[in-house]
Design a protein around this nucleic acid. Structure first.
Lengths: 221, 221
DNA sequence: CAACTAATCAATAGACTAATTGAACAGGGT
DNA sequence: ACCCTGTTCAATTAGTCTATTGATTAGTTG
């Protein structure tokens, strides 16, 4: 039947969207973009590729409808085309993490001995913030991502600046650090550095995108 | 930093799972498998490929952890490795459908003038079944999929047999037909044939997997 | 045990695809 | 005009992907 051709074409189109995510670099880009829009040059820096190459990857994502752009002056800002795109990435990593032992192993390599310490759940942190509990929330992401949205009351200290800005932190409050998500190393590193310096510190489960997706308050101030 | 290599390896691993879905034929396989386990030969028939080729595609899915197998006698039955795999396919098609105009166009080509008639919502059908409302639920999928699980009280009439089995249907009850999901043509065709024959017929929104994922009762009797 | 069935494997042809780089180009800002 | 940021192009290199064929393994049946 002619149906076969039509059906194939339709499912190939779905495959196109999957193909856009069939590259580690493009997934990294989506992971960063889940934290807010960024211009190409910044994205290139984040994933460690040339601007030209990053631009190519972004075109692939755009043609698959996963990201859109906004021109501001001379720069072009990319962002996820819809919240479902983050959802797609979230489900993808869930499936991969639960099905591929390899992911577990590589995550441990990259993030360090994972979960040596239980992370703080979103629910718990939300409750403590609501109750005015004494806790310092630390945003370990780059300043631009903090500016695009962050946890209420969070202090922005990009991971690279943490060591020389330790003095800014009060020693008597527990620190809860967060970053881009479960596969971002910033918060892990921050916690390690803080504990080494004698602070009481823990990591938040997930990152800002997960916090926002859970419907919790995001501050833009 | 050495971090880059570790990070790349980790995200490449996520990409592996996406790559498994980066083929229209493999997505078709997942779509069928969401309706219950099937042996290789049956799957080959469904997607219109040779058994050997189908087996190859299934290996790709298995290595990505999306499906698992069970040997029964001489045949090997494949099934989705976890409910999240269906969820992944569901989100993927949602993203693709809302972002790619092309999908809309191709879906119309394959399924025919889509939604000439509003489909019955799951909620509405569930209520009518609960209330003992007069409705005939018709399962247009192959008998094997019906056997693997179906809507409560549904009558199994595979689309290919419908025309010569019209006499079995009572003329005084509305017929609600369903199949594998929103991109399966069986229910569309069934409704067209039924209406042509003078029946009052509508399509259920989504198919069995969506019904099950919504937590509604699935009968195996 | 031989014959048979279902599925997988191995090898391969052929056709594409993908990632990347550097240079040229375009749009907007100063 | 000239600079900046991105995009596009052309070219290179290195695969990858699909589908096919024929051989092979695992399990069943007479």
């Amino acid at each position: 039947m002619a149906d076969r051709a039509a059906k194939s074409a339709l499912f190939d189109e779905f495959a196109r969207a999957a193909k856009a995510l069939a590259s580690g670099r493009r997934i990294e880009l989506v992971d960063v973009l889940a934290n807010g829009e960024r211009p190409v040059e910044a994205l290139a820096g984040e994933v460690g590729l040339s601007v030209a190459n990053t631009s190519q990857h972004l075109q692939v994502l755009r043609q698959a409808g996963l990201v859109t752009t906004r021109r501001q002056g001379t720069s072009v800002h990319y962002r996820l085309a819809a919240p479902e795109v983050f959802e797609l990435w979230r489900v993808l990593r869930t499936v991969a993490a639960s099905r591929l032992a390899e992911v577990e192993r590589l995550a441990a390599t990259y993030l360090g001995a994972r979960d040596e310490l239980e992370p703080v759940t979103r629910q718990e942190l939300a409750r403590r913030l609501r109750d005015g509990d004494s806790v310092l929330v630390l945003d370990a992401r780059p300043a631009a991502e903090h500016a695009a949205g962050h946890l209420p009351g969070a202090v922005s200290i990009p991971i690279g600046e943490l060591r020389r800005r330790l003095a800014e932190l009060p020693g008597d409050r527990e620190v809860v650090a967060y970053c881009r998500g479960p596969y971002c190393a910033f918060a892990h590193k921050a916690v390690a550095e803080l504990r080494e310096a004698g602070f009481q510190a823990r990591r938040l489960e997930g990152g800002l995108p997960e916090w926002a997706a859970a419907g919790l308050a995001v501050s833009h101030a």
